[in-house]
Amino acid sequence: MSSLAVPQAEPRAGSTPGTAQDRRPPLRRRIALVPTVTLLLGALYCLLPVAWVVIAATKSGRELFSTFTFLPGTGFADNVRDLTAYRDGVYWQWMANSALYAGLGALLSTCVSAVSGYALATYRFRGRETIFNVLLAGVLMPPVILAVPQYLLLAQADLTDSYLSVLLPQILFPYGVYLARIYAAAAVPADVVEAGRMDGASEWRIFTRIALPMMIPGMVTVFLFQFVAIWNNFLLPYIMLSDDEKFPITLGLFTLLEQGANTPALYTLVITGAFLAVLPLVALFLVIQRFWSLDLLSGAVKS
């Protein structure tokens, strides 16, 4: 799932002055061979496993290992039906759980990031750099390390094995705060904030009405990053949850795979499940992509 690349904005037609009129001779448009081949190989490397999952999801258990790898099978509908039937549709429950964890978690953490990033970028106060440096250290710290201490903490509060136990630790997202600060510093000019103050707006009003709209494209990025991070997170929910009705999709698929030695592994179900679990991420990227182009419009300041 992590192989999804952030789509690059296409340069707009006519965005570079002069290109439209300048009819270049074909010689100069010659494709650079080495970089292109390298990129193609890279793309192949990233896309082949995805293609494998897509094709393997269509194969029935009988076809999975016996037919040619990239030959589509005939069992997709059956696989989806079996997956839905597994433990009375618990798969869709996992999907819904993942959507809740990732959706709500990313939204909350984006809000927290926006507020703190804006504050760090706009206000000068004692300890600001210390906070920022601690934050940077937090960015470098893999969240995996924190899962067990977080579990022990939440166990003290009797919150383990609940939806909250997975949501709470993921609300503070150091990388998000870091991005938000950088973005706020670049997109919200001090002049604008100052002008707001001169006009008598409260700080909260300045933030929500003036700064936040300017920060939207950056916040969309933070939301996406955190959404993907939570969607793919494994260890935290693994430690926190014991009730498989509350599992997110990653954990659910893991239990599907690890059924004990005496049970045939449910490969077809796991593959179909993994394939279906990527779809929401793809859809999210396609839908949210357009917000990035807002960047050009909303970042502009009259000078």
């Binding site: 433990r87 067990v148 579990y151 022990l152 166990a155 383990t160 693994y238 430690i239 014991s242 009730d243 498989d244 954990l251 893991f254 239990t255 795979l257 690890e258 059924q259 004990g260 030695a261």
Partner: peptide, 17 residues
């Protein structure tokens, strides 16, 4: 019943709990 994944990871999970 709380269904889990089998294997060594479950041992670790039990010890953590």
């Amino acid at each position: 019943v709380k269904k889990q994944a089998s294997g060594d990871t479950l041992v670790t999970k039990i010890l953590t709990a």
